[in-house]
């Protein structure tokens, strides 16, 4: 096998791909959140933010393709890891007990990941692949969240995302080999802080649009 393929497809290589794509998503989420916060500045601010964003043209397309590629890598690698790891213990224990290493996030990674995939598809259908002629993005978002079912789904999805990130972020650093006595406590703390920022930052938006704005 080619050296690059054999490095990337090894167990550590797969972790590397999960870590890098995962970190890309964290970066994307931070940018996405910063943009979305313009909703609090009102309809016009949000619409003009969206316009500015789309005026970037090819750059946006490039970023979108990058995200799509990362998503494919993350999903396929994650699914492979999930399957291989199930197979690695054909006879399960009759008593399972954690020694305190696992967290809610770490033990649910494949499941939270799957829920997020379903959510992202829904999210793209809701706001991306939608006819935007004769309307503004603010109107689309506002009318979507007039339906409380969407509010519930979106808030739930953000809680799931936070759980996923609470393990994923520090885990990515560990995988990259960046486990250092001086920085690891900070990185672990950052994972939780970032998760909370995601759940509050994104999660409050539908509630705000539905009941306050």
């Amino acid at each position: 096998m080619n050296w690059l393929a054999s490095t990337l497809l090894s167990s550590i290589g797969k972790k590397l791909m999960m870590a890098i794509t995962g970190l890309c998503f964290c970066g994307f989420l931070a940018g996405h959140l910063a943009g979305n916060l313009t909703i609090y500045l009102g309809k016009d601010a949000f619409n003009s933010y969206a316009e500015h964003l789309h005026s970037l043209g090819p750059i946006i397309t490039l970023v979108e393709l990058g995200l799509l590629f990362s998503a494919l890598v993350h999903i396929l690698t994650g699914a492979t890891l999930f399957y291989q790891n199930l197979k690695a213990r054909p006879v399960r224990y009759s008593v399972n007990k954690s020694a305190g290493g696992r967290t809610l996030g770490s033990r649910t990674m494949p499941y939270t990941g799957f829920i997020l995939l379903v959510f992202i598809v829904l999210h793209l259908i809701n706001f991306h692949f939608i006819d935007k002629t004769d309307t503004t993005i603010y109107q689309i978002v506002h009318s979507a969240f007039a339906n409380y079912v969407y509010v519930v789904i979106y808030v739930f999805a953000m809680i799931v995302a936070a759980i996923h990130i609470s393990h994923g972020l520090w885990s990515a650093f560990q995988t990259l080999g960046a486990n250092h006595v001086k920085y690891m406590p900070f990185i672990r703390g950052l994972s939780y802080v970032f998760s909370i920022i995601i759940v509050l930052g994104f999660g409050f938006l539908p509630i705000y649009l539905a009941y306050i704005a």
Binding site: S11, I12, K14, K15, L81, Q84, N85, K87, A88, R89, S98, A99, G100, G101, R102, S106, R107, M109, H167, W170, S171, Q174, T175, G177, A178, N179, V181, M184
Partner: peptide, 24 residues
Amino acid sequence: FGNCTNERECEAECPKEISITNIA
């Protein structure tokens, strides 16, 4: 064998208390 997903159970159970900094 399975793939490591940084669950940290090994470090907690190791009778010689070997740290996952070694995994990094």
